[in-house]
Amino acid sequence: MTEVKHNGDPALPRGAAIDIAGLTKVYRTGGKTTVAVDGLTLSIKAGEFFSLLGVNGAGKTTTIKMLSGLSAPTEGDATLGGFSVCKQPLAVRQIIHVSPQNTAVALNLTVKENLELMAGLWGKNGKESRAAADRVIRQMELTKVADDRAKTLSGGWQRRLSIAMALITDPAILFLDEPTLGLDVLARRELWTVISALKGQVTVVLTTHYLEEAEALSDRLGIMVGGKLRALGTVAELCARTGTEKLEDAFVALATEKGGTL
């Protein structure tokens, strides 16, 4: 077992590892069978920043749902921090946080109240929750809006709050599902700075349609096509494999490759 959850020892890598073995999700509706994720096998190291790319319907969100214990795999299994999503889904939920596509904040609560709520729901007592909220507010530079209600924040600030709500639960693994969707370029760049500061602090699995975002932030990338992992590697490796210079060209080449395999 290679995964290690940080325990304050700076010598240890932070975050937790993810080992996925033959993860498969099949939907059967009205006699129709759809394979959303097909035999996904993949390892993500503790503290790694990993991006999962793919066109709509490629299976990214289904993969995250299975890894977060929301949806049971049809076949296969995955361990997160050593806990099986099939056999120990509640233990998995204790060490992860999913920051969904939408901002997913409590709109009539202030920034600080949102953070304290999350900390409390994940098991911290009142004093710990307040201390954690203060820490995350400083870490995410939310001080000037700490007492503002979430509904009064701009899209960029709400996204920042959304990520802060994930971090306050001290996850070993953080799933960011299209965190900059719908933001203007400046807000997106600001959020990149925030997200890139997480590198090495926590294992991050990012899904995004913005390839420049994945390129700027990721240690490694996986490209899913039709529920299967088509390619895996660093940006340089994927470009070298396709003979392209930019990730976008590499992505297009890999996503449209006929019968391509990993």
């Binding site: 995964e3 940080h6 325990n7 806990f83 509640l90 233990a91 060490i95 098991g123 639960t169």
Partner: peptide
């Protein structure tokens, strides 16, 4: 490594 995880504050809090 598994022991480290089980002793971690996050999981301990979660267990309770």
């Amino acid at each position: 490594d598994q022991k480290n995880i089980e002793k971690s504050p996050t999981v301990a809090a979660g267990s309770s």
